[in-house]
Simulated scan of single mutants.
Amino acid sequence: MYGPHPDEAFPLPATDISKVDPRFLRQQVPYPTYEPPGTIVVDTPNRYLYLVQGDGMALRYGIGVGKAGLEFAGEARIGRKAQWPRWIPTSDMVAREPERYGPLAGGLDPGLTNPLGPRALYLYQDGKDTLFRIHGTTEAWSIGKAVSSGCIRMFNPDVIDLYNRVPEGTRVVVIQAQPPMEPAMPPIDASMQMPAEEAPLAF
């Protein structure tokens, strides 16, 4: 699962998983929930992302999450998907760490050193970009930790796998405690307009 991906626009080397607890590797697991199949559930405290499959099962991926005070919580939709996205630090990130992010305020082109990795899923609420993303990472060792500036990091092969499984409009539930046990949201409004231009990105 974590070998090289030579056919990518920027060929990916094998992912170094040697410093990561094996429980954070992609696997199918029992996962009873009221959420319908196709829903993404992000379990922030346990550092897991679940793609609900139905029949009490889910695909589970290990994730890295935001530092204390920077986590996203609540419900969103995948409003946009991008392969090898461009990265731009948010104004909050630049203000918080000017020495680190100030020189990058103009953005970073796609590639193996881009913090978003090979794929990004953009989280929207009420048709508006939240600036939070589910994306790859240049720091495989960070999976299972709370080190990001708020976004949800995945191993690069895992975010490619998830990207290929979910469409725009997918419901995303990000929890900080118990798994959600509420009925699903109504179907996404097909008239929701997505921006044509790249929005600032957090990671």
Rank of each mutant, 00 (worst) to 15 (best):
D7K: 11
A9K: 03
P11I: 04
P13F: 15
S18K: 11
R23F: 05
L25M: 12
L25D: 00
Q27M: 04
Q27T: 15
Q28G: 02
Q28C: 10
P30K: 06
Y31D: 00
Y31P: 07
T33Q: 00
E35C: 08
T39Q: 08
V42L: 03
V42K: 01
D43R: 03
R47Q: 11
Y48E: 01
Y50S: 05
D55E: 15
D55S: 03
L59Y: 14
G66F: 03
G69V: 12
A73D: 05
A73V: 10
I78S: 00
G79H: 09
W87P: 05
P89F: 07
D92I: 02
D92V: 04
R96K: 14
E97M: 11
P98E: 06
R100F: 11
Y101Q: 07
G106H: 08
G106P: 04
N114V: 06
G117S: 10
L123W: 03
Y124W: 00
Q125D: 07
D126K: 15
D126Q: 13
D126R: 12
G127D: 05
K128V: 14
D129C: 01
L131G: 07
L131K: 03
R133C: 05
H135S: 10
H135R: 12
H135Q: 12
H135I: 06
W141V: 02
A146H: 05
V147R: 01
S148M: 10
S149T: 13
S149K: 12
G150T: 02
F155M: 09
F155S: 00
D158S: 13
D158R: 09
D158C: 07
D158T: 04
V159D: 12
I160G: 01
L162S: 02
L162H: 06
N164V: 13
R165M: 09
P167H: 04
P180Q: 12
E182T: 12
P183K: 10
M185G: 08
P187D: 09
A190L: 15
S191P: 02
M194R: 13
M194S: 13
M194K: 13
P195E: 01
A199E: 14
L201M: 14
L201V: 13
F203I: 09
